[in-house]
Design a protein around this nucleic acid. Sequence first.
DNA 1: TTGTATGCGTTATCAG
DNA 2: CTGATAACGCATACAA
Lengths: 330, 330
Amino acid sequence: MSRRIRLEDVAAEVGLSRASVSMVMRGAPGPSADTVERVLAAADRLGYRPDRAASALASRRSRMIGVVLEVRSTFHAELAEEMLAAADRIGYDLLLGPRTPHRDEARAVESLLDSRCEALVLIGTEAPVERLVALDRQVPVVTVGRRMPGATLDVVRLDDESGVSGLVRHMVGLGHRRIAYVRGHDAVIAADREAGYRRAMSEAGLEPHVVAGGKDAEDGVASARSMLAEALPTAVLLFNDQAAIGFMSELARAGVDVPAQVSVAGFDDSPLARLGPVALTTVHQDVPGLTRHTLELIGERLDGGRSARREVVITPEVVVRASTAEVAGI
Amino acid sequence: MSRRIRLEDVAAEVGLSRASVSMVMRGAPGPSADTVERVLAAADRLGYRPDRAASALASRRSRMIGVVLEVRSTFHAELAEEMLAAADRIGYDLLLGPRTPHRDEARAVESLLDSRCEALVLIGTEAPVERLVALDRQVPVVTVGRRMPGATLDVVRLDDESGVSGLVRHMVGLGHRRIAYVRGHDAVIAADREAGYRRAMSEAGLEPHVVAGGKDAEDGVASARSMLAEALPTAVLLFNDQAAIGFMSELARAGVDVPAQVSVAGFDDSPLARLGPVALTTVHQDVPGLTRHTLELIGERLDGGRSARREVVITPEVVVRASTAEVAGI
DNA sequence: TTGTATGCGTTATCAG
DNA sequence: CTGATAACGCATACAA
């Protein structure tokens, strides 16, 4: 384990002071073109890489943005990937703060803060709003994917309500009248999506039928079982794609054909939606759009001097695939 | 944005020196029980959190382990989650270094090193062996999931070859004789799995039939298309679950029944395998086992003074599910 | 058991 | 345009 190359080593190599080399390394104005070239060459030759800890300490800036996510979620992962590139473009680095069943959101946030992140992106946060507002006083916070009722926070999200409404209208357009909704348990998102369902059903003059569910494939399986035990509607909307996939697989096992007998739709347009034997009709999450707006908000707060909070709402699109069809026997 | 609480603030609060507070904070022996209590109370009251950058700089230790992974992969994500907990137990923190199509492995490694990671875990690395050996001279490296032919490196992996052999034997036991293998394009893993296939086929006195494929669902779809255009074997093994899922979904679209007409198997036992309408027979990746061994190796290198390199090979188990059945019409 | 002094690798201010 | 030099927040050997 050889010692790390320091600024001083590079300075010695080119016969300059550490200060000059430092300026060159971070592209500060000052050094002559000739100096820049020599320093860069020497740094490259020696394999010098600036020490982030030292740099952060001295500059009081880490140039890092913390992202709290659920690594398990492919949707979160997609967002993180996209944000990685976007952050790079505005000269920041991303620090991932994974949230798991054994490591709650608060812990992830603490860890990110310990690492001196200058701003925080919370994907699909489940923390109470007051806590987030408090956090936002320490460091700029942007929440992604969830409405923040009555809070002054930066938010980037899909219009969940209109997404599900669109799904209902799609079903109605196919002639369905018995359309059920299997809700998630999340406080806000689930409520919004359910509201979209209820609104669209009422607009179509139909009776809503909401049942409890969840966000995982297993939840979808369970929902299917209980629905099979009772009467099956002609169309079922589920909280998200995961649940919808589980739901469909259980129907398949029971010999119920999708979409011939039952039309099914999810939400998220996760990679899973395209994958199965029956491609899922769903609501598209605009990952590049969410990402772009998120990093714009952060850029404005960090480098643009904005202080007022903003909310960006993206109107989502329904993606029609093979899991929905005209209602049978009408 | 209020100023951060420093060690000094806590020291002032309790009327002690920074040194004493520092000892208390990191649980160093020395301070009296009474002092510890007072300091901890004050730190808590003020909301003090040690600054990692400063701490790393001063102690020349970051207590961080870098993990290079593909965030998109649910298997990698599962490993990362598990490692997070395991690292915590031995007093380390994990730093995730995502590898994406726009951010190659070398870049992820550099970033992790810039953050002073003391050891690196490379999940499913695709880097050339020589590069890894060179890297291992800078910092302890453990590669997960891939054999490192002829290299002195710490490796934790499944016995891919025997995994696929087991799958073949399972198929043979079900009466299959025309068993095809759709390989991946990875240099080492794909070769190992293919070797396992060839060995088991030869042991069963069967003629091997290997076709090109890939690791994504789309690759599986493509494989299915080309196989449907030609003659379909009675059993098909695919490089991994993703490919197998894509393969099965394309078969379903073409009206081919799995497992009645064709038996299909994957590799990885990813969450996907259990999900679809037809649960996939596959080879189980022992995530807790891989994790435990990985962190053991790291602990030994970092705190145990081990210098010789070790390889840990886990014998994987075949998980039989619904996608394989006795060969039809025999 | 507690305090003092020094250093960690950078950045940034201010002379030259 | 370049070079000293003082922070940055904390850890640690050593002294008290």
